[in-house]
Design a protein around this nucleic acid. Sequence first.
DNA 1: GTGACAGTTTACGTTCGCGTCAAGTTAACG
DNA 2: CGTTAACTTGACGCGAACGTAAACTGTCAC
Lengths: 131, 131
Amino acid sequence: MSDTLSTIGQMCEEFAVTPRTLRFYESKELLFPRREGSRRLFTRSDRARLKLILQGKRFGFSLEEIRQLLDLYDIGDQQRTQLARTYSVAQERLEAMRAQRDELDAAIADLEAKMADARDILKSRGVSIAA
Amino acid sequence: MSDTLSTIGQMCEEFAVTPRTLRFYESKELLFPRREGSRRLFTRSDRARLKLILQGKRFGFSLEEIRQLLDLYDIGDQQRTQLARTYSVAQERLEAMRAQRDELDAAIADLEAKMADARDILKSRGVSIAA
DNA sequence: GTGACAGTTTACGTTCGCGTCAAGTTAACG
DNA sequence: CGTTAACTTGACGCGAACGTAAACTGTCAC
């Protein structure tokens, strides 16, 4: 049960990040590893949070935004307070994400059209396109 | 016809950016305003490019990546060289954008599920949710 | 001419998300 | 015992994308 505790090295391997990154996240209060003396021991909760942090980053959220969102995610596990407030924060984020997706869809369609044009031009020049 | 030329101030108002930003983009060769003495005059082409720059930024592309993409967009207008090369660059970008959209879709679904959970918790607590 | 603006260049400052030493500690191995 | 590996805490560095003074020019209204 307590074998879910990981050292920083194990965490780094598991999530493909550097120690610096994990220490940085702790300094920013995104992670809260326990201590065994001076050494960090990452819990199951830390792993769950880190997973979400890395996911959030891919969507272009700042660490600060992610920190706020993490409060929401914690609720499912541990019943924290201020759920209603963080819920509305998440709602705004969700709207932003949807808007971003819509823009992205439009941009993709746009780029596809431009590339079709480019293909025509290349074709008329007798230039073949690599797969 | 030439009334499409704008000063830096007009551009700033139109696109909600600062003069510093436009000068910075020019220094990075993203924009190529004409000069009237020392003053910049932004063309129709600059406005089209700026629009794409701001769009690209929202998708998380770096200014350098955007600069490369702009070459492609120019082609439709002005028939530049190296179309085949920029085409493959665009192809990679397109793939990245699709991947990003897929991740974003997944994240949206994820967040929606979490929020549904949160709603249940709030409901069980008798907390009403604002619209 | 004299503000008042809108614009210019130069250049240093800032935030974010870490990278990269530097120097020290602690645990285990042989 | 020495040393090797994994860890620790600073602290400075860096690229991106601008912000922000500072100091100057040019143009218009009055």
